[in-house]
Nucleic acid binder design. Structure first.
Lengths: 185, 185, 185, 185
DNA sequence: TATGAATGAGCCTTCATTCAT
DNA sequence: CATGAATGAAGGCTCATTCAT
């Protein structure tokens, strides 16, 4: 006989649990910031603590998983040569607005996990690539570098992380308007 | 039940302790953000927890003390009608670069202490006042509001908070250059 | 960061821990009053602080658990229409003698937990109900109210709380004799 | 030069300080119960912590001092052969109602201070003496002993200690009415 | 002798992490 | 493999007590 409450649904549930954890993490991170308690994530996902740790031994690895879905969307868009940096940024800004923890990745600080840097690097060079092609550069000023772009994104993320849930949308708009002005003409 | 490690250095130490606490707080806030642990501040200052609480009953009162001199400098400069918003911002940016937590004050979130809001408000209206006078407006664009200005400052602070000590100066320059471009023409 | 002294005895220990906590709480409450430190209860039970909080998130919930069986016994007896207030009081007095903190419940002061008031209210109206029926009133004087009865019980409990373990039984007898005389003819 | 705020008023102030401490203690004990913080007493008295400790090395010694004034009044009354135990009790009840900490003495528990027991004993034999003289016995029943009397007083005190300041007077009346009935016919 | 600052122990509470079942 | 209880470290805060001045 297994534990008590929820039954052990066997190996088949593993994939589902993983997905549920990612979904829960995205939600909880967005709600409470990147330093939300791991318990709350497990609870939201409807799984035990152990499952969380089995799938994601560290907070970063979890964030990474959350982030992978986001970066997939960004990379897909960027792969399309007809999209501009403006378009890519629009997506990123939208993602950050929804789930501020997305940033904790883009602006990797205080973490040792090398994969985090790797992912950030991937995004970075992706943008750098587009910047080099005038047709994909969008409205960004000529002297703006990928580093500038990421800094802008990081600043947006950082401020959203400290912004109350209700005001987030509005703050995102105001802040990005300012940053965009700084990046474009 | 008392003294075991550190000796009681007597009342004479009071002023020194207060100063040490402020110094430590400035350092720790800058390093770890406004939500650094008070214990770490006490530890850094080399005093017991009690001393911290005696001098600063709340986290806010400590922050207030830490930034008192910063604020004084800003207000002094702003009082001079021949100074522009640009000048004021230059000073603020410099202060933030040195001690990033200055912003936690300017962007008061999650605090009930009315004095914090009061100080933030003072700074805010100080800038607002200067913005209204064309001769003190400096190079800021016509549609830029005090709220925009503070948001920019908050973003700078937020990113510096996540920046490694050694890179701070450089990051501050790059970031502020971007933000300034967003605020000015 | 975890385990060092006591070993993790696993989930199987849960029921045992809960019981140990209740036992410890009963003992410690009786010894030191309702404002005993929770740490001492955890220590007495031989569990970590966390376990205590997991099982009983608040001091009140612990007290409630402690006195659940006491209350049950009282209510059961009271439900029998052939029992008198005298009988009910005899049981309560016996319980108090064993575990004085029982009263802290009956005389709810300084708590916001509605369940405590609810339980106290239940006991109170239970006695009040019996008082209204002459056949169940026992030997209590006609002008004695439920409030008088509970005050008497509270006084007994209060004094037992300050009485040394060895003398408790005797003190309980002497005190209740006096109080009973005050309540009856 | 002395410390900072209040000046060192020299040896002459000693007596005054002692009196102020006693007055403050009586007030604070009555307000917050016997476990009020010593700091609050010193503050109320308008003296430093050190002075409190100089005059009263222990909480008990302070209580003792507070009590001495009370017992003086009681002894004076009792010395008058025309007064009855009823009269004496009336005074004690009044004192307890005003300053519940008075009890902490009468029901000496959890203290090692021998003087406390001594004082309690003095009061006890004083009452015992009056009980032996029918003309001073008042309305107390024949089988009531001094121990019963003190137990009653202790119970009153104990319950008042847990009673909210505003309801004290009323509670005292109700409780004593009950106890008195138990002591008299 | 008085002052009041300093000290640290101790309680409360929350969580990351482990591990028996 | 999943569950969820157990553990204890850590941080916040309060106070009794000491002691330099």
């Amino acid at each position: 006989m297994t534990a008590s409450g929820r039954a052990n649904r066997g190996p088949k549930a593993a994939a589902g649990n993983r997905a549920a954890l990612i979904r829960a993490a995205r939600e909880v991170f967005a709600e409470n910031g990147f330093d939300a308690t791991l318990s709350s994530i497990a609870r939201t996902a409807g799984v035990g603590q152990g499952v969380l740790y089995r799938h994601f031994p560290t907070r970063e690895s979890l964030a990474l998983a959350v982030f992978e879905e986001n970066i997939a969307e960004v990379e897909e868009l960027a792969a399309d040569p007809s999209s501009t940096v403006d378009d890519v940024l629009a997506v990123i800004v939208e993602q950050i607005t929804t789930s501020a923890a997305f940033v904790a990745m883009i602006n990797p600080t205080g973490t040792d996990d090398p994969r985090v840097g790797e992912v950030a690097g991937r995004l970075m060079s992706l943008v750098a690539g587009k910047l080099e092609d005038p047709s994909q550069r969008g409205s960004l000023r000529a002297d703006v570098t990928a580093s500038d772009v990421f800094m802008a994104v990081a600043m947006l993320a950082a401020i959203l992380l400290k912004t109350d849930g209700r005001s987030k949308r509005q703050m995102a708009q105001q802040a990005w308007a300012l940053l965009e002005r700084g990046l474009t003409r």
